[in-house]
Design a protein around this nucleic acid. Structure first.
Length: 197
DNA sequence: CCACGGATTGGCT
DNA sequence: GCCAATCCGTGGA
């Protein structure tokens, strides 16, 4: 079952925790991609200097000020796209970065999108979606998907539960230079598809 | 107008 | 482990 608006309009830290185990789905005509969320980070423009919304509303970050349940996509280092789930109520400026997935459906198309070839060698399956840029590249998510409504059919999340033996881990966020101390990275402990940290 | 740097990745030393 | 790639938002002159 697809997650509804009310799931997303809550506090960013609650949504970040509950996104673990949920399934990201992208339907692109006949192509279907899906993967289980195993690693996320919360960003809160009200208090968090690392958030794109900390400086207030601009053209770049305006999607992040929507009410919860929209996709915010940005270009990182001029090279990689990263996607976020907008959370909270309208005008707040909070979102959850999807950092890693466990691939489920559409793996062959993910391989083509990401490595430009048809077969994996060695440990490449675990490197398919174990980072925020890799997730977007595999799924074919780009700037044109920024602002997509996650309660519609193009990109959405399916409800799912963590498995019995799975526990949530917490740490500082990766790769930022401001507000580095905030423990706002959440992940499924021991999952093989976590980003390389 | 120009300079700077960043929520990353992968290739090379 | 180090660092280039490569774009563009942002802020100061």
């Amino acid at each position: 079952m697809k997650l509804k608006r009310a799931f997303y309009t809550r506090d960013v830290l609650i949504v970040a925790n509950e996104l673990l185990g949920k399934v990201l789905v992208k339907k692109d005509g006949r192509k279907l991609f899906s993967g289980r969320i195993v690693e996320v980070e919360a960003y809160d423009g009200r208090t968090d200097q690392a958030a794109h919304t900390y400086i207030g509303k601009t053209k770049r970050n305006e999607i992040m000020f929507n009410e919860g349940g929209y996709l915010y996509v940005y270009l990182s280092y001029g090279v990689h796209y990263c996607c976020n789930v907008v959370t909270g109520t309208k005008g707040i400026g909070t979102a959850v970065l999807i950092r890693a997935l466990e691939p489920l459906e559409g793996v062959n198309m993910m391989i083509r999108n990401r490595f430009d070839k048809n077969k994996l060698v060695g440990k490449e399956l675990k490197q398919l979606t174990n980072g925020p840029g890799k997730v977007c590249k595999s799924f074919g998510i780009g700037k044109n998907h920024s602002g997509v409504d996650l309660t519609k059919d193009k990109i959405y999340l399916e409800n799912a539960l963590l498995k019995k033996n799975e526990e949530i881990g917490v740490s500082k966020r990766i790769g930022i230079t401001k507000s580095v101390h905030l423990p706002w990275r959440f992940f499924i402990k021991n999952n093989p598809y976590l980003s390389g940290y």
